[in-house]
């Protein structure tokens, strides 16, 4: 369950975060300000609070979500806010002359983003994004508050039933470590390939 939820959360939040970042980077009027506020708000909100808000407060506004969709929405929104900051700093630090070279050739802004900027910034953002994903993983216990069974919750339940809390928690720790190790290994692998091929790690 943990792996599943996190995978969906990551898969949804990275592109959404990129979209937010692009909107803010282009300084689209009004939207930019609104999103800046939204992102700071989410970043300042403890994850548990966000989960509770989505599950318990949204229904009173007429939006009712089952626990699992609610968990996914919470994970996605949270990670989207953080990842949009990562994308934005990558966009901001992208070499100006490479972008101008694209525009000077007659590429549209979208073409420049798709063909020149994105293929380079995803590589430099990989490290920060993986740490973000790791944090996302560690957030998953919070969704237990709305009754979704993830690793920690399962462990405490087993512990309570068997009166032997230690083994399940050790197992839970091992599982988290394994999930995070998989992510980090994946990151290292990609970074090494990028470095070998292009001769640089991150711009």
């Amino acid at each position: 369950m943990t792996a599943w939820l996190s995978a969906i959360g990551i898969a949804l939040s990275l592109p959404l975060g990129l979209l937010l970042a692009i909107i803010r980077w282009r300084r689209v009027a009004v939207l930019d300000g609104v999103l800046a506020g939204f992102v700071s708000l989410i970043r300042a909100t403890p994850f548990v609070t966000l989960v509770l808000f989505i599950f318990f407060v949204l229904p009173s506004l007429g939006i009712e979500l089952k626990p699992i969709p609610a968990a996914i929405v919470a994970l996605t929104i949270n990670t989207m806010a953080f990842s949009s900051e990562i994308w934005r700093s990558a966009l901001d630090s992208f070499p100006r002359d490479q972008r101008e070279a694209a525009e000077a050739c007659g590429m549209s802004e979208f073409q420049a983003l798709r063909r020149v900027i994105f293929p380079q910034i995803w590589r430099s953002s990989l490290g920060p994004l993986v740490s973000e994903a790791t944090i996302l993983l560690k957030c998953t216990p919070a969704i237990a508050v709305i009754g979704v069974v993830e690793i920690t919750r399962a462990a405490s339940r087993i512990g309570a039933e068997t009166y032997e809390p230690l083994p399940p928690f050790l197992l839970a720790t091992v599982l988290y470590t394994a999930l995070i190790a998989v992510l980090v290994r994946g990151q290292r692998y990609v970074e090494r390939r990028v470095a070998n091929r292009y001769g640089y790690v991150a711009p």
Binding site: D97, E100, A101, G106
Partner: peptide
């Protein structure tokens, strides 16, 4: 006019001091 500007730019080459090659 973004579209016309892009069309015109396609006819004007530009070479930068620091090369500005696309590294990927």
């Amino acid at each position: 006019n973004r579209r016309e500007l892009a069309e015109t730019r396609a006819k004007i080459g530009m070479v930068f001091q620091h090369f500005a090659l696309w590294r990927h």
